[in-house]
Computed example of a mutant assay.
Amino acid sequence: MQRRHVAAGLAGTTLLAAGEAMAQAVPPAPRVTVPQAPGAPPSRGPATDPWRQGLEAGILSLVTSQIAESRAASPQVKAFASFEVAEQRSIVQAQQLAGLPVPPQLKVEGDEARLVQQLETASGEEFDRLYLRLQLASHQQLLALHQRFRANGSREQKIISTMAAVTAEQHLRLLQGIQRQG
């Protein structure tokens, strides 16, 4: 058992070092803005480009997880949020390395902005429940999109989506487990 933890720790350190080296060669992640006005604009509806839909779902997951890193009540929720922030940043970097389009700036607006604002005003167990619900919905959407790209996307999309779909499946199981404990 301890050997697995040591091996996982060494692998994590190696991946971290490799990630830091790659990050130096990768353009910065897109800036994300979230309107702060109470009356956010109406939802823009679903993006017509499925790859952009996945990027937007990932960005929503990133933004809500950044909030959860400091606001979650449960240590399990905080830990998941940290994993999710790292994962979403890595996916954006992988997309950039693969030459896939990543706009320099993305906005969380409409319905998604209202969800972020709800999350920002929640606290304690209410915050955790709302965050878990948002993450479950986001990961289900991400899983469906990445499964589609794994089957029918470009070579680069298939590569990214192969890893992203597996991660989304694992995260759905983790989220469901955390939800059952709470």
Rank of each mutant, 00 (worst) to 15 (best):
Q117C: 00
K107W: 04
P101I: 05
A122V: 01
A8F: 02
T162P: 03
P38K: 04
L174K: 11
Q176F: 00
V63S: 01
E156N: 06
M22K: 09
D49C: 03
H171F: 01
D49G: 05
D128A: 03
L175K: 04
A98R: 14
R44C: 11
T162M: 03
H5T: 12
N152L: 10
I59P: 02
K78M: 04
V102F: 03
L130M: 01
Y131P: 06
Q157Y: 02
K78C: 03
R155H: 11
T14D: 15
Q135H: 03
M1C: 09
A81Q: 03
V63E: 07
T121R: 14
G182S: 14
P28G: 10
H146Y: 10
E125Q: 15
P104Q: 10
V6Y: 07
A122N: 08
A18W: 10
S43R: 11
P30L: 02
Q53D: 08
Q2K: 11
I67S: 10
S161I: 02
P46Y: 07
A81E: 04
G58D: 12
W51S: 13
R150M: 07
L55Q: 12
L134F: 05
P101W: 06
S161E: 11
Q66L: 12
E69W: 00
A151R: 08
A57F: 03
P30T: 09
P104I: 03
P35E: 07
I59E: 07
G19E: 13
G153V: 06
P104H: 09
Q88Y: 00
K107R: 12
P35V: 09
T162G: 15
L100G: 08
T167G: 11
D111W: 02
D111K: 08
H146K: 09
E120N: 12
A165E: 13
R114N: 15
V6L: 10
Q88G: 11
V166G: 15
A122M: 06
L136Y: 04
V34A: 04
Y131K: 04
L142D: 05
G58A: 05
A37Y: 00
A25H: 13
G110H: 03
V166E: 15
P101R: 10
K107Q: 15
P27M: 06
P75H: 01
Q88P: 13
S123D: 13
R148L: 10
A68D: 02
V166I: 08
A21Y: 05
Q176H: 10
A144K: 10
R150N: 12
V92R: 04
A25F: 05
V63W: 01
G39L: 14
I59C: 05
A86M: 08
F83N: 14
E112H: 06
A47V: 06
K107G: 09
S74D: 15
A29I: 04
V26Y: 07
Q140E: 15
E87S: 12
V116H: 01
A11F: 03
E120W: 01
A72W: 00
S154F: 00
Q179L: 05
L145V: 05
G45C: 05
R155P: 15
P41E: 14
T33M: 06
P46I: 13
